[in-house]
Amino acid sequence: MKFLIIGIFAAIVAFLIWRSKQNTDPNEQACAIEIGNLLKAHPDAQPQAIADVFKKHVIDQSQCKHVGAMVMPQLRKQGLKPEDARILMGQVRGAYPLVP
Protein backbone atom coordinates (compact mmCIF):
# COMPACT_ATOMS: atom_id res chain seq x y z
CA MET A 1 0.00 0.00 0.00
CA LYS A 2 2.85 2.34 0.90
CA PHE A 3 4.55 1.74 -2.47
CA LEU A 4 1.29 2.38 -4.31
CA ILE A 5 0.91 5.80 -2.70
CA ILE A 6 4.53 6.69 -3.41
CA GLY A 7 4.13 5.51 -7.02
CA ILE A 8 0.99 7.59 -7.56
CA PHE A 9 2.64 10.66 -6.01
CA ALA A 10 5.73 10.23 -8.23
CA ALA A 11 3.55 9.86 -11.32
CA ILE A 12 1.64 13.06 -10.50
CA VAL A 13 4.86 15.01 -9.93
CA ALA A 14 6.37 13.68 -13.17
CA PHE A 15 3.20 14.63 -15.09
CA LEU A 16 3.20 18.16 -13.66
CA ILE A 17 6.86 18.67 -14.53
CA TRP A 18 6.30 17.37 -18.07
CA ARG A 19 3.22 19.56 -18.53
CA SER A 20 4.97 22.72 -17.30
CA LYS A 21 7.76 22.17 -19.82
CA GLN A 22 5.21 21.67 -22.61
CA ASN A 23 3.38 24.92 -21.77
CA THR A 24 6.43 27.17 -21.94
CA ASP A 25 6.62 29.07 -25.20
CA PRO A 26 10.27 29.89 -26.04
CA ASN A 27 9.27 33.37 -27.23
CA GLU A 28 7.51 34.10 -23.92
CA GLN A 29 10.46 32.73 -21.98
CA ALA A 30 12.89 34.91 -23.97
CA CYS A 31 10.71 37.94 -23.26
CA ALA A 32 10.68 37.20 -19.51
CA ILE A 33 14.46 36.78 -19.50
CA GLU A 34 14.97 40.07 -21.32
CA ILE A 35 12.64 41.91 -18.94
CA GLY A 36 14.52 40.37 -16.00
CA ASN A 37 17.84 41.53 -17.46
CA LEU A 38 16.43 45.01 -18.08
CA LEU A 39 15.19 45.33 -14.52
CA LYS A 40 18.44 43.99 -13.09
CA ALA A 41 20.47 46.52 -15.10
CA HIS A 42 18.02 49.42 -14.62
CA PRO A 43 15.83 48.92 -11.53
CA ASP A 44 14.17 52.27 -12.20
CA ALA A 45 13.10 51.30 -15.75
CA GLN A 46 9.86 52.92 -16.83
CA PRO A 47 6.82 50.77 -17.68
CA GLN A 48 7.07 52.01 -21.28
CA ALA A 49 10.52 50.41 -21.62
CA ILE A 50 9.09 47.13 -20.34
CA ALA A 51 6.13 47.44 -22.72
CA ASP A 52 8.63 47.90 -25.56
CA VAL A 53 10.18 44.54 -24.67
CA PHE A 54 6.72 42.93 -24.79
CA LYS A 55 6.18 44.51 -28.23
CA LYS A 56 9.62 43.41 -29.44
CA HIS A 57 8.73 39.78 -28.66
CA VAL A 58 5.24 40.18 -30.17
CA ILE A 59 3.47 39.50 -26.87
CA ASP A 60 -0.07 40.81 -26.89
CA GLN A 61 -1.90 42.19 -23.88
CA SER A 62 -3.73 38.93 -23.18
CA GLN A 63 -0.38 37.13 -22.73
CA CYS A 64 1.24 39.80 -20.55
CA LYS A 65 0.14 38.30 -17.24
CA HIS A 66 1.50 34.88 -18.20
CA VAL A 67 4.85 36.32 -19.26
CA GLY A 68 4.88 38.64 -16.23
CA ALA A 69 4.55 35.61 -13.97
CA MET A 70 7.77 34.26 -15.47
CA VAL A 71 9.67 37.48 -14.71
CA MET A 72 9.66 36.98 -10.93
CA PRO A 73 11.71 33.74 -11.10
CA GLN A 74 14.12 35.49 -13.49
CA LEU A 75 14.67 38.26 -10.97
CA ARG A 76 15.23 35.68 -8.23
CA LYS A 77 17.78 33.83 -10.39
CA GLN A 78 19.68 37.09 -10.75
CA GLY A 79 20.04 37.37 -7.00
CA LEU A 80 17.36 39.89 -6.07
CA LYS A 81 15.71 39.52 -2.70
CA PRO A 82 12.02 38.51 -2.79
CA GLU A 83 10.85 41.89 -1.51
CA ASP A 84 12.93 43.75 -4.12
CA ALA A 85 11.60 41.49 -6.86
CA ARG A 86 8.01 42.17 -5.73
CA ILE A 87 8.62 45.92 -5.93
CA LEU A 88 9.98 45.59 -9.47
CA MET A 89 6.99 43.46 -10.45
CA GLY A 90 4.85 46.56 -9.89
CA GLN A 91 6.66 48.16 -12.81
CA VAL A 92 6.03 45.07 -14.93
CA ARG A 93 2.30 45.14 -14.09
CA GLY A 94 2.26 48.84 -14.96
CA ALA A 95 3.44 47.97 -18.46
CA TYR A 96 0.50 45.64 -19.24
CA PRO A 97 -1.95 48.40 -20.26
CA LEU A 98 0.71 49.95 -22.52
CA VAL A 99 0.91 46.81 -24.68
CA PRO A 100 -1.50 46.76 -27.63
Rank of each mutant, 00 (worst) to 15 (best):
M1Q: 11
M1L: 07
K2T: 11
K2G: 11
F3H: 14
F3R: 15
F3L: 11
F3G: 14
L4R: 06
I5G: 09
G7P: 12
G7V: 09
G7Y: 10
I8T: 15
I8H: 13
F9G: 12
F9Q: 14
A11D: 03
A11H: 10
I12P: 01
V13K: 01
V13M: 01
V13D: 01
V13C: 00
A14K: 10
L16C: 06
L16W: 12
L16Y: 11
I17A: 10
W18F: 14
R19W: 15
R19P: 02
S20R: 13
S20C: 05
Q22R: 13
N23F: 04
D25I: 02
P26D: 12
E28G: 04
Q29F: 06
Q29H: 10
A30D: 09
A30C: 07
C31K: 01
C31L: 04
A32V: 01
A32M: 04
A32C: 09
I35T: 07
G36D: 01
N37C: 04
N37T: 09
L38S: 08
L39A: 11
K40N: 07
K40C: 00
K40H: 06
A41I: 04
A41H: 12
H42M: 13
D44V: 03
D44A: 08
A45K: 07
A45E: 00
A45P: 01
Q46E: 11
Q46L: 11
Q48F: 12
Q48V: 08
Q48I: 14
Q48W: 04
A49Q: 15
I50Y: 05
D52N: 04
D52F: 03
D52A: 05
D52E: 10
V53A: 01
F54T: 03
F54P: 03
K55N: 09
K55C: 03
K56M: 03
K56L: 08
H57G: 03
H57R: 14
V58F: 03
D60C: 08
D60N: 15
D60G: 14
Q61G: 14
S62A: 13
Q63N: 12
Q63I: 04
Q63H: 15
Q63S: 14
C64S: 13
H66C: 03
V67F: 05
V67W: 05
G68Y: 06
A69T: 06
M70V: 07
M70W: 02
M70G: 11
V71G: 09
Q74R: 10
L75Q: 08
L75I: 07
R76E: 12
K77M: 06
Q78P: 00
G79A: 00
G79E: 07
L80N: 09
K81I: 00
K81E: 15
K81D: 15
P82C: 06
P82S: 09
E83C: 07
D84K: 15
D84I: 00
M89Q: 05
M89R: 08
Q91N: 15
V92T: 04
V92F: 02
R93D: 04
R93A: 10
A95H: 04
A95K: 00
A95C: 02
Y96V: 05
Y96T: 05
P97I: 03
P97R: 11
